[in-house]
């Protein structure tokens, strides 16, 4: 018995508690070379409406955001707040920015996306719920100062972006979220652990980042559009569906595509994707 206690105590002491949450974030370098040259012709924007912003996040970090549109629009028009997926920087979503900037017609909606800490030029390191919430709040703080109000804000979250979008929609947003698009979202931290091991292990075995989009959706009272592909190997549809269907808000819409994977927009095409999103925004 003494031997067992010794081993158990030694094990606890030896444990360095490495946390995988940092490893979940695939941040990297960015060039921020946002030019029409890199956009398909139908997604071209007025280059005078491309604005790179640096915003304070928390007390020590600076995050970078890209706003496409007139700043004056923020106080009067619908603004898309885009939370990007797990790529090194928002460079990968420049085409997405062009698409949103051309929904309906050129610069009909304002569009903003940003890099989380440790992504692109944003300083610091994303570590979990706290850093993600602070980065989101930095962007919302800017938008609020420019006059954005709740009924004109649409939050669109892609994959990793669903992690900060969930708590924000559930009441953690200084501008309350009324319209939310969850594109290929994850579900819970536990699910990632359980899908990797096949066991009922909680995520706390490897990380302190406890996200739970199911709970967030249960607490979210606004409108939700969930988009997913049946062949998504990064965010399995079964668990994403279970999380999204906990939504009890004012309006729920789902768009599930047979055979589509995690790169949903590429799989279903810009036309279909834009149509579904636009219908939801106008709903």
């Amino acid at each position: 018995m003494k031997k067992f206690l010794f081993i158990a105590l030694a094990a606890i002491t030896l444990s360095s508690c490495a946390d995988v949450s940092g490893a979940l974030f695939a941040g990297g370098d960015g060039t921020y070379d946002f030019k029409n040259t890199y956009l398909d012709p139908e997604f071209q924007v007025d280059e005078s409406k491309i604005h790179l912003l640096d915003l304070e996040s928390g007390t020590q970090d600076t995050i970078y955001a890209l706003y496409v549109g007139d700043f004056a629009q923020i106080a009067t028009d619908t603004i898309i707040v885009f939370l990007h997926g797990n790529t090194p920087s928002m460079d990968s979503y420049w085409q997405t920015a062009g698409l949103f900037a051309n929904l309906v017609n050129k610069h009909h909606y304002g569009f903003i996306m940003y890099d989380y800490r440790g992504f692109g030029w944003s300083t610091g390191r994303s570590t979990g719920a706290e850093s993600m919430a602070a980065d989101y709040d930095a962007v919302l703080s800017f938008l609020q100062s420019q006059g954005l109000t709740s009924e004109r804000m649409v939050v669109v979250a892609n994959s990793l972006g669903s992690l900060p979008a969930g708590p924000a929609a559930a009441g953690g947003s200084r501008i309350p979220v009324q319209k939310l698009v969850m594109e290929v979202p994850q579900s819970t931290a536990n699910v990632i652990m359980q899908n990797a091991t096949g066991l009922s292990l909680p995520a706390s075995m490897i990380t302190s980042y406890k996200f739970d989009l199911g709970q967030n959706m249960e607490d979210y009272t606004g409108e939700l559009l969930w988009m997913h592909g049946t062949e998504d190997a990064v965010a399995p549809i079964e668990t994403a569906e279970a999380a999204m269907q906990k939504h009890q808000g004012t309006y729920y819409q789902e768009a599930v595509y047979e055979g589509a994977g995690h790169g949903l927009r590429w799989d279903i095409g810009d036309e279909e994707w834009s149509k579904v999103v636009l219908d939801f925004i106008r709903h």
């Binding site: 094990a11 360095s16 490495a18 995988v20």
Partner: peptide, 13 residues
């Protein structure tokens, strides 16, 4: 004992 689990913060015996 699994040292890899220890590294990640879980004692596995």
């Amino acid at each position: 004992i699994q040292f890899s689990s220890l590294l990640l913060g879980a004692v596995q015996l």
